[in-house]
Design a protein around this nucleic acid. Structure first.
Lengths: 215, 215
DNA sequence: ACCTGAACACCGTTCAAGT
DNA sequence: ACCTGAACACCGTTCAAGT
Protein backbone atom coordinates (compact mmCIF):
# COMPACT_ATOMS: atom_id res chain seq x y z
CA UNK A 1 0.00 0.00 0.00
CA UNK A 2 2.27 2.72 -1.22
CA UNK A 3 1.53 6.39 -0.85
CA UNK A 4 -0.94 6.12 1.98
CA UNK A 5 1.40 7.23 4.73
CA UNK A 6 1.15 10.75 6.11
CA UNK A 7 -2.19 11.15 4.42
CA UNK A 8 -3.30 14.69 5.19
CA UNK A 9 -6.95 15.23 6.02
CA UNK A 10 -8.54 15.77 2.66
CA UNK A 11 -12.16 15.18 3.50
CA UNK A 12 -14.51 18.06 4.20
CA UNK A 13 -13.83 19.43 7.64
CA UNK A 14 -17.33 19.08 8.90
CA UNK A 15 -20.59 17.83 7.58
CA UNK A 16 -22.66 20.93 6.98
CA UNK A 17 -25.64 20.24 9.19
CA UNK A 18 -27.32 23.59 9.15
CA UNK A 19 -28.91 24.95 6.02
CA UNK A 20 -26.66 27.97 5.94
CA UNK A 21 -23.54 25.82 6.15
CA UNK A 22 -24.74 23.54 3.42
CA UNK A 23 -25.37 26.61 1.30
CA UNK A 24 -21.88 27.88 1.96
CA UNK A 25 -20.30 24.62 0.88
CA UNK A 26 -22.43 24.78 -2.22
CA UNK A 27 -21.22 28.28 -3.02
CA UNK A 28 -17.62 27.22 -2.59
CA UNK A 29 -17.97 24.25 -4.90
CA UNK A 30 -19.85 26.32 -7.43
CA UNK A 31 -17.14 28.97 -7.41
CA UNK A 32 -14.43 26.34 -7.80
CA UNK A 33 -16.32 24.79 -10.68
CA UNK A 34 -16.62 28.11 -12.48
CA UNK A 35 -12.94 28.91 -11.99
CA UNK A 36 -11.81 25.49 -13.18
CA UNK A 37 -14.01 25.73 -16.25
CA UNK A 38 -12.63 29.15 -17.09
CA UNK A 39 -8.93 28.84 -16.26
CA UNK A 40 -8.21 25.25 -15.38
CA UNK A 41 -6.24 24.12 -12.38
CA UNK A 42 -3.70 26.90 -12.74
CA UNK A 43 -6.36 29.48 -11.94
CA UNK A 44 -7.72 27.70 -8.91
CA UNK A 45 -6.51 29.47 -5.76
CA UNK A 46 -8.21 29.37 -2.42
CA UNK A 47 -8.37 33.13 -2.26
CA UNK A 48 -10.04 33.32 -5.64
CA UNK A 49 -12.50 30.60 -4.74
CA UNK A 50 -13.41 32.51 -1.59
CA UNK A 51 -13.74 35.77 -3.50
CA UNK A 52 -15.93 34.27 -6.21
CA UNK A 53 -17.99 32.49 -3.57
CA UNK A 54 -18.43 35.82 -1.81
CA UNK A 55 -16.90 34.76 1.48
CA UNK A 56 -13.54 35.13 3.17
CA UNK A 57 -10.71 32.61 2.93
CA UNK A 58 -11.05 31.96 6.63
CA UNK A 59 -14.60 30.77 6.18
CA UNK A 60 -13.56 28.53 3.33
CA UNK A 61 -11.07 26.85 5.63
CA UNK A 62 -13.79 26.17 8.14
CA UNK A 63 -15.43 23.81 5.70
CA UNK A 64 -12.45 22.49 3.77
CA UNK A 65 -9.16 21.71 5.53
CA UNK A 66 -7.14 22.50 2.42
CA UNK A 67 -7.33 23.20 -1.27
CA UNK A 68 -7.24 19.55 -2.29
CA UNK A 69 -10.36 18.87 -0.26
CA UNK A 70 -12.30 21.18 -2.56
CA UNK A 71 -11.05 19.34 -5.62
CA UNK A 72 -11.84 16.00 -4.00
CA UNK A 73 -15.40 17.12 -3.34
CA UNK A 74 -15.80 18.11 -6.97
CA UNK A 75 -14.34 14.81 -8.15
CA UNK A 76 -16.73 12.88 -5.94
CA UNK A 77 -19.64 14.80 -7.39
CA UNK A 78 -18.45 14.10 -10.93
CA UNK A 79 -17.89 10.43 -10.20
CA UNK A 80 -21.40 10.13 -8.89
CA UNK A 81 -22.59 11.30 -12.30
CA UNK A 82 -20.35 8.81 -14.07
CA UNK A 83 -21.59 5.96 -11.91
CA UNK A 84 -25.17 6.91 -12.67
CA UNK A 85 -24.50 6.99 -16.39
CA UNK A 86 -22.84 3.58 -16.25
CA UNK A 87 -25.78 2.17 -14.36
CA UNK A 88 -28.17 3.59 -16.92
CA UNK A 89 -26.24 2.02 -19.77
CA UNK A 90 -26.09 -1.30 -17.93
CA UNK A 91 -29.85 -1.28 -17.52
CA UNK A 92 -30.34 -0.49 -21.19
CA UNK A 93 -28.15 -3.34 -22.46
CA UNK A 94 -29.29 -5.92 -19.94
CA UNK A 95 -30.49 -8.35 -22.60
CA UNK A 96 -28.25 -7.32 -25.47
CA UNK A 97 -25.50 -9.58 -26.81
CA UNK A 98 -22.08 -8.99 -25.24
CA UNK A 99 -20.45 -7.05 -28.10
CA UNK A 100 -23.40 -4.66 -28.19
CA UNK A 101 -23.25 -4.16 -24.43
CA UNK A 102 -19.50 -3.54 -24.46
CA UNK A 103 -19.87 -1.13 -27.35
CA UNK A 104 -22.39 0.83 -25.30
CA UNK A 105 -19.93 1.16 -22.41
CA UNK A 106 -17.13 2.14 -24.77
CA UNK A 107 -19.31 4.78 -26.38
CA UNK A 108 -20.14 6.17 -22.97
CA UNK A 109 -16.42 6.47 -22.22
CA UNK A 110 -15.78 8.07 -25.60
CA UNK A 111 -18.56 10.56 -25.00
CA UNK A 112 -17.15 11.41 -21.59
CA UNK A 113 -13.68 11.95 -23.03
CA UNK A 114 -14.47 13.78 -26.24
CA UNK A 115 -17.54 15.82 -25.42
CA UNK A 116 -16.54 17.47 -22.25
CA UNK A 117 -15.31 20.64 -20.73
CA UNK A 118 -11.98 21.90 -19.48
CA UNK A 119 -13.43 21.30 -16.06
CA UNK A 120 -13.78 17.57 -16.50
CA UNK A 121 -10.33 17.24 -18.01
CA UNK A 122 -8.73 19.13 -15.14
CA UNK A 123 -10.57 17.03 -12.59
CA UNK A 124 -9.50 13.85 -14.32
CA UNK A 125 -5.85 14.68 -13.86
CA UNK A 126 -6.28 15.60 -10.26
CA UNK A 127 -8.14 12.40 -9.65
CA UNK A 128 -5.12 10.39 -10.65
CA UNK A 129 -2.87 12.41 -8.40
CA UNK A 130 -5.21 12.32 -5.42
CA UNK A 131 -6.09 8.68 -5.86
CA UNK A 132 -2.86 7.90 -4.05
CA UNK A 133 -4.06 9.62 -0.92
CA UNK A 134 -7.76 8.95 -0.86
CA UNK A 135 -10.04 6.31 -2.18
CA UNK A 136 -12.99 7.09 -4.36
CA UNK A 137 -14.23 3.65 -3.48
CA UNK A 138 -17.98 4.04 -3.31
CA UNK A 139 -18.54 5.15 -6.89
CA UNK A 140 -15.88 2.73 -8.07
CA UNK A 141 -17.94 -0.10 -6.57
CA UNK A 142 -21.12 1.05 -8.27
CA UNK A 143 -19.34 1.03 -11.62
CA UNK A 144 -17.81 -2.36 -10.94
CA UNK A 145 -21.18 -3.82 -10.08
CA UNK A 146 -22.83 -2.56 -13.25
CA UNK A 147 -20.06 -3.86 -15.46
CA UNK A 148 -19.89 -7.16 -13.57
CA UNK A 149 -23.64 -7.68 -13.94
CA UNK A 150 -23.31 -7.07 -17.65
CA UNK A 151 -20.48 -9.49 -18.31
CA UNK A 152 -21.46 -12.19 -15.81
CA UNK A 153 -23.71 -14.17 -18.17
CA UNK A 154 -20.82 -14.43 -20.62
CA UNK A 155 -18.44 -15.66 -17.95
CA UNK A 156 -20.54 -18.47 -16.53
CA UNK A 157 -18.29 -20.71 -14.48
CA UNK A 158 -15.95 -17.98 -13.32
CA UNK A 159 -15.64 -17.31 -9.58
CA UNK A 160 -17.57 -14.21 -8.43
CA UNK A 161 -14.41 -12.42 -7.36
CA UNK A 162 -12.89 -13.18 -10.75
CA UNK A 163 -15.87 -11.56 -12.43
CA UNK A 164 -15.36 -8.47 -10.28
CA UNK A 165 -11.72 -8.38 -11.20
CA UNK A 166 -12.59 -8.70 -14.86
CA UNK A 167 -15.03 -5.81 -14.50
CA UNK A 168 -12.34 -3.65 -12.88
CA UNK A 169 -9.84 -4.56 -15.55
CA UNK A 170 -12.30 -3.80 -18.29
CA UNK A 171 -13.11 -0.44 -16.77
CA UNK A 172 -9.47 0.52 -16.40
CA UNK A 173 -8.56 -0.74 -19.85
CA UNK A 174 -11.31 1.19 -21.60
CA UNK A 175 -10.70 4.33 -19.62
CA UNK A 176 -6.94 4.28 -20.10
CA UNK A 177 -7.15 3.83 -23.84
CA UNK A 178 -9.83 6.46 -24.28
CA UNK A 179 -8.10 8.97 -22.02
CA UNK A 180 -4.79 8.49 -23.74
CA UNK A 181 -6.33 8.82 -27.18
CA UNK A 182 -8.12 11.98 -26.17
CA UNK A 183 -4.98 13.46 -24.64
CA UNK A 184 -2.82 12.73 -27.67
CA UNK A 185 -5.37 13.88 -30.21
CA UNK A 186 -6.29 10.54 -31.74
CA UNK A 187 -9.72 11.04 -33.27
CA UNK A 188 -12.61 9.27 -31.69
CA UNK A 189 -13.52 7.08 -34.65
CA UNK A 190 -9.93 5.87 -34.96
CA UNK A 191 -9.67 4.74 -31.35
CA UNK A 192 -13.12 3.18 -31.06
CA UNK A 193 -12.40 -0.12 -32.86
CA UNK A 194 -9.14 -0.55 -30.99
CA UNK A 195 -10.85 -0.17 -27.62
CA UNK A 196 -13.55 -2.60 -28.65
CA UNK A 197 -10.91 -5.09 -29.74
CA UNK A 198 -9.11 -4.78 -26.41
CA UNK A 199 -12.26 -5.13 -24.34
CA UNK A 200 -13.75 -8.04 -26.27
CA UNK A 201 -10.35 -9.69 -26.60
CA UNK A 202 -9.87 -9.56 -22.85
CA UNK A 203 -13.29 -11.05 -22.22
CA UNK A 204 -12.70 -13.76 -24.80
CA UNK A 205 -9.45 -14.64 -23.04
CA UNK A 206 -11.37 -14.95 -19.77
CA UNK A 207 -13.88 -17.28 -21.42
CA UNK A 208 -11.10 -19.38 -22.89
CA UNK A 209 -9.65 -19.74 -19.41
CA UNK A 210 -13.00 -20.94 -18.04
CA UNK A 211 -13.32 -23.48 -20.82
CA UNK A 212 -9.82 -24.82 -20.26
CA UNK A 213 -10.32 -25.36 -16.53
CA UNK A 214 -14.02 -25.35 -15.61
CA UNK A 215 -15.14 -25.45 -12.00
CA UNK B 1 -4.99 18.35 -30.15
CA UNK B 2 -6.11 19.48 -26.75
CA UNK B 3 -3.78 20.91 -24.16
CA UNK B 4 -1.05 22.01 -26.51
CA UNK B 5 -1.92 25.70 -26.57
CA UNK B 6 0.12 28.12 -24.52
CA UNK B 7 2.78 25.50 -24.10
CA UNK B 8 5.43 27.15 -21.93
CA UNK B 9 9.05 26.49 -22.83
CA UNK B 10 9.87 23.35 -20.90
CA UNK B 11 12.94 22.24 -22.72
CA UNK B 12 16.41 23.02 -21.37
CA UNK B 13 17.22 26.65 -22.03
CA UNK B 14 20.43 25.98 -23.86
CA UNK B 15 22.40 23.00 -24.93
CA UNK B 16 25.38 22.94 -22.63
CA UNK B 17 28.19 23.14 -25.15
CA UNK B 18 31.09 23.82 -22.85
CA UNK B 19 32.33 21.22 -20.43
CA UNK B 20 31.68 23.39 -17.42
CA UNK B 21 28.06 24.00 -18.47
CA UNK B 22 27.47 20.33 -19.08
CA UNK B 23 28.84 19.66 -15.64
CA UNK B 24 26.52 22.22 -14.11
CA UNK B 25 23.47 20.66 -15.74
CA UNK B 26 24.65 17.32 -14.44
CA UNK B 27 24.93 18.68 -10.91
CA UNK B 28 21.44 20.12 -11.10
CA UNK B 29 19.91 16.86 -12.30
CA UNK B 30 21.83 14.90 -9.70
CA UNK B 31 20.63 17.20 -6.93
CA UNK B 32 17.05 16.94 -8.16
CA UNK B 33 17.33 13.17 -8.27
CA UNK B 34 18.57 13.01 -4.72
CA UNK B 35 15.85 15.30 -3.43
CA UNK B 36 13.11 13.40 -5.24
CA UNK B 37 14.40 10.10 -3.92
CA UNK B 38 14.47 11.44 -0.38
CA UNK B 39 11.33 13.57 -0.15
CA UNK B 40 9.36 13.09 -3.33
CA UNK B 41 7.86 15.86 -5.38
CA UNK B 42 6.76 17.83 -2.35
CA UNK B 43 10.39 18.41 -1.36
CA UNK B 44 11.53 19.51 -4.79
CA UNK B 45 12.00 23.28 -4.82
CA UNK B 46 14.23 25.20 -7.16
CA UNK B 47 16.06 26.83 -4.29
CA UNK B 48 16.76 23.48 -2.69
CA UNK B 49 17.96 22.01 -5.95
CA UNK B 50 20.30 24.92 -6.39
CA UNK B 51 21.56 24.63 -2.82
CA UNK B 52 22.17 20.89 -3.06
CA UNK B 53 23.82 21.37 -6.45
CA UNK B 54 26.04 23.98 -4.85
CA UNK B 55 25.04 26.82 -7.14
CA UNK B 56 22.68 29.76 -6.93
CA UNK B 57 19.08 29.75 -8.11
CA UNK B 58 19.99 32.29 -10.74
CA UNK B 59 22.45 29.90 -12.34
CA UNK B 60 19.88 27.15 -12.30
CA UNK B 61 17.53 29.34 -14.30
CA UNK B 62 20.22 29.88 -16.88
CA UNK B 63 20.04 26.25 -17.85
CA UNK B 64 16.41 25.42 -17.11
CA UNK B 65 13.64 27.92 -17.89
CA UNK B 66 11.49 26.64 -15.05
CA UNK B 67 11.07 23.90 -12.51
CA UNK B 68 9.17 21.59 -14.82
CA UNK B 69 12.09 21.60 -17.26
CA UNK B 70 14.22 19.90 -14.62
CA UNK B 71 11.62 17.20 -14.12
CA UNK B 72 11.24 16.75 -17.87
CA UNK B 73 14.97 16.23 -18.22
CA UNK B 74 14.88 13.57 -15.52
CA UNK B 75 11.92 11.87 -17.16
CA UNK B 76 13.69 11.80 -20.50
CA UNK B 77 16.69 10.21 -18.88
CA UNK B 78 14.51 7.58 -17.21
CA UNK B 79 12.62 6.86 -20.40
CA UNK B 80 15.86 6.27 -22.22
CA UNK B 81 16.58 3.53 -19.69
CA UNK B 82 13.14 2.02 -20.16
CA UNK B 83 13.50 2.02 -23.94
CA UNK B 84 16.84 0.27 -23.64
CA UNK B 85 15.38 -2.38 -21.35
CA UNK B 86 12.51 -2.99 -23.75
CA UNK B 87 14.90 -3.36 -26.63
CA UNK B 88 16.97 -5.82 -24.67
CA UNK B 89 13.92 -7.93 -23.88
CA UNK B 90 12.79 -7.79 -27.50
CA UNK B 91 16.18 -9.09 -28.62
CA UNK B 92 16.04 -11.90 -26.09
CA UNK B 93 12.60 -13.17 -27.13
CA UNK B 94 13.09 -12.72 -30.85
CA UNK B 95 12.44 -16.37 -31.60
CA UNK B 96 10.24 -17.27 -28.66
CA UNK B 97 6.54 -18.09 -29.08
CA UNK B 98 4.21 -15.10 -28.64
CA UNK B 99 2.94 -15.87 -25.11
CA UNK B 100 6.51 -16.21 -23.88
CA UNK B 101 7.51 -12.94 -25.50
CA UNK B 102 4.52 -11.09 -24.09
CA UNK B 103 5.18 -12.54 -20.66
CA UNK B 104 8.71 -11.17 -20.83
CA UNK B 105 7.42 -7.67 -21.58
CA UNK B 106 4.86 -7.92 -18.80
CA UNK B 107 7.50 -9.06 -16.34
CA UNK B 108 9.65 -6.11 -17.31
CA UNK B 109 6.74 -3.77 -16.58
CA UNK B 110 6.06 -5.53 -13.28
CA UNK B 111 9.69 -5.21 -12.32
CA UNK B 112 9.68 -1.51 -13.16
CA UNK B 113 6.56 -0.94 -11.09
CA UNK B 114 7.24 -3.09 -8.05
CA UNK B 115 11.00 -2.90 -7.61
CA UNK B 116 11.63 0.77 -7.84
CA UNK B 117 12.27 3.84 -5.84
CA UNK B 118 10.23 6.78 -4.68
CA UNK B 119 12.02 8.67 -7.40
CA UNK B 120 10.61 6.60 -10.23
CA UNK B 121 7.11 6.74 -8.81
CA UNK B 122 7.23 10.51 -8.49
CA UNK B 123 8.53 10.89 -12.03
CA UNK B 124 5.81 8.62 -13.33
CA UNK B 125 3.12 10.91 -12.04
CA UNK B 126 4.75 14.00 -13.39
CA UNK B 127 5.13 12.34 -16.73
CA UNK B 128 1.39 11.98 -17.04
CA UNK B 129 0.85 15.61 -16.13
CA UNK B 130 3.56 16.95 -18.40
CA UNK B 131 2.66 14.67 -21.31
CA UNK B 132 -0.04 17.21 -22.13
CA UNK B 133 2.52 19.92 -22.80
CA UNK B 134 5.45 18.06 -24.25
CA UNK B 135 5.97 14.90 -26.18
CA UNK B 136 8.34 12.22 -25.09
CA UNK B 137 8.18 10.97 -28.62
CA UNK B 138 11.63 9.64 -29.33
CA UNK B 139 11.72 7.01 -26.60
CA UNK B 140 8.09 6.21 -27.24
CA UNK B 141 9.00 5.32 -30.81
CA UNK B 142 11.83 3.07 -29.73
CA UNK B 143 9.48 1.15 -27.48
CA UNK B 144 6.87 0.93 -30.19
CA UNK B 145 9.37 -0.46 -32.64
CA UNK B 146 10.57 -3.18 -30.29
CA UNK B 147 7.06 -4.28 -29.45
CA UNK B 148 5.94 -4.08 -33.07
CA UNK B 149 8.88 -6.21 -34.20
CA UNK B 150 7.96 -8.78 -31.60
CA UNK B 151 4.28 -9.09 -32.47
CA UNK B 152 4.57 -8.66 -36.25
CA UNK B 153 5.09 -12.35 -37.06
CA UNK B 154 1.89 -13.17 -35.22
CA UNK B 155 -0.06 -10.53 -37.09
CA UNK B 156 0.88 -11.46 -40.62
CA UNK B 157 -1.54 -9.81 -43.00
CA UNK B 158 -2.11 -6.71 -40.91
CA UNK B 159 -1.17 -3.34 -42.35
CA UNK B 160 2.13 -1.94 -40.99
CA UNK B 161 0.42 1.04 -39.36
CA UNK B 162 -2.05 -1.31 -37.74
CA UNK B 163 0.83 -3.28 -36.24
CA UNK B 164 2.25 -0.05 -34.83
CA UNK B 165 -1.11 0.84 -33.37
CA UNK B 166 -1.38 -2.60 -31.83
CA UNK B 167 2.09 -2.15 -30.31
CA UNK B 168 1.08 1.21 -28.83
CA UNK B 169 -2.14 -0.22 -27.47
CA UNK B 170 -0.34 -3.16 -25.95
CA UNK B 171 2.20 -0.88 -24.30
CA UNK B 172 -0.47 1.38 -22.87
CA UNK B 173 -2.64 -1.49 -21.74
CA UNK B 174 0.16 -3.28 -19.89
CA UNK B 175 1.47 -0.13 -18.34
CA UNK B 176 -1.94 1.10 -17.19
CA UNK B 177 -2.86 -2.17 -15.54
CA UNK B 178 0.52 -2.58 -13.87
CA UNK B 179 0.66 1.03 -12.67
CA UNK B 180 -2.85 0.88 -11.29
CA UNK B 181 -2.21 -2.39 -9.53
CA UNK B 182 0.97 -1.02 -7.99
CA UNK B 183 -0.75 2.16 -6.89
CA UNK B 184 -3.69 0.37 -5.27
CA UNK B 185 -1.58 -2.28 -3.59
CA UNK B 186 -2.61 -5.30 -5.62
CA UNK B 187 0.22 -7.79 -5.21
CA UNK B 188 2.35 -8.50 -8.21
CA UNK B 189 1.48 -12.18 -8.55
CA UNK B 190 -2.25 -11.39 -8.46
CA UNK B 191 -2.10 -8.87 -11.29
CA UNK B 192 0.28 -10.78 -13.53
CA UNK B 193 -2.20 -13.30 -15.00
CA UNK B 194 -4.75 -10.55 -15.56
CA UNK B 195 -2.31 -8.45 -17.55
CA UNK B 196 -1.26 -11.46 -19.58
CA UNK B 197 -4.89 -12.22 -20.31
CA UNK B 198 -5.52 -8.66 -21.47
CA UNK B 199 -2.43 -8.52 -23.66
CA UNK B 200 -2.87 -11.91 -25.28
CA UNK B 201 -6.62 -11.41 -25.59
CA UNK B 202 -6.06 -8.15 -27.42
CA UNK B 203 -3.59 -9.76 -29.81
CA UNK B 204 -5.89 -12.69 -30.40
CA UNK B 205 -8.67 -10.24 -31.29
CA UNK B 206 -6.34 -8.60 -33.80
CA UNK B 207 -5.57 -11.95 -35.36
CA UNK B 208 -9.25 -12.83 -35.54
CA UNK B 209 -9.81 -9.58 -37.41
CA UNK B 210 -7.10 -10.43 -39.91
CA UNK B 211 -8.59 -13.86 -40.48
CA UNK B 212 -12.09 -12.47 -41.02
CA UNK B 213 -10.99 -9.93 -43.63
CA UNK B 214 -7.56 -10.77 -45.07
CA UNK B 215 -5.81 -8.37 -47.43
C1' DA C 1 -20.27 30.79 17.61
C1' DC C 2 -18.79 32.31 13.36
C1' DC C 3 -16.81 35.44 10.07
C1' DT C 4 -12.99 38.54 8.48
C1' DG C 5 -8.74 39.62 6.20
C1' DA C 6 -4.15 41.03 7.40
C1' DA C 7 -0.17 38.44 8.26
C1' DC C 8 3.00 34.43 7.94
C1' DA C 9 5.73 31.07 5.75
C1' DC C 10 7.13 29.56 1.55
C1' DC C 11 7.87 29.02 -3.38
C1' DG C 12 8.98 30.08 -8.40
C1' DT C 13 11.26 33.45 -10.85
C1' DT C 14 13.80 37.78 -11.87
C1' DC C 15 17.38 41.14 -12.12
C1' DA C 16 20.55 44.71 -10.34
C1' DA C 17 24.87 44.23 -8.62
C1' DG C 18 28.99 42.06 -8.56
C1' DT C 19 33.33 39.25 -10.63
C1' DA D 1 30.19 36.59 -19.95
C1' DC D 2 28.52 34.49 -16.05
C1' DC D 3 27.33 33.98 -11.26
C1' DT D 4 24.97 35.66 -6.96
C1' DG D 5 21.24 36.13 -3.82
C1' DA D 6 18.15 39.67 -2.22
C1' DA D 7 13.78 40.97 -3.79
C1' DC D 8 9.21 40.41 -6.03
C1' DA D 9 4.87 38.45 -6.85
C1' DC D 10 1.96 35.06 -5.42
C1' DC D 11 -0.13 31.23 -2.95
C1' DG D 12 -1.83 28.14 0.92
C1' DT D 13 -2.97 28.58 5.51
C1' DT D 14 -3.56 30.68 10.16
C1' DC D 15 -5.28 33.42 13.87
C1' DA D 16 -6.08 37.72 16.47
C1' DA D 17 -9.61 40.77 16.20
C1' DG D 18 -14.07 41.69 15.41
C1' DT D 19 -19.57 40.76 15.32
Amino acid sequence: MRGRRNAPPILPRKAPRQDRSRELVEWILEAATRILAADGLAGLTTNRVAAVAGISVGSLYQYFPNKDAIVVALIERTQRGVAEAVEAVAAQVRDAPLPTAIAAFVDLALHAQYDRSTLAVALDHEEQRLALHIEFAAEQRRIRRSVADTIRPSLRGLAPEAVDEAADDLHLLVRSMVDHAGATGVPRERIRPRVLRAALGYLEACRAEVRSCPR
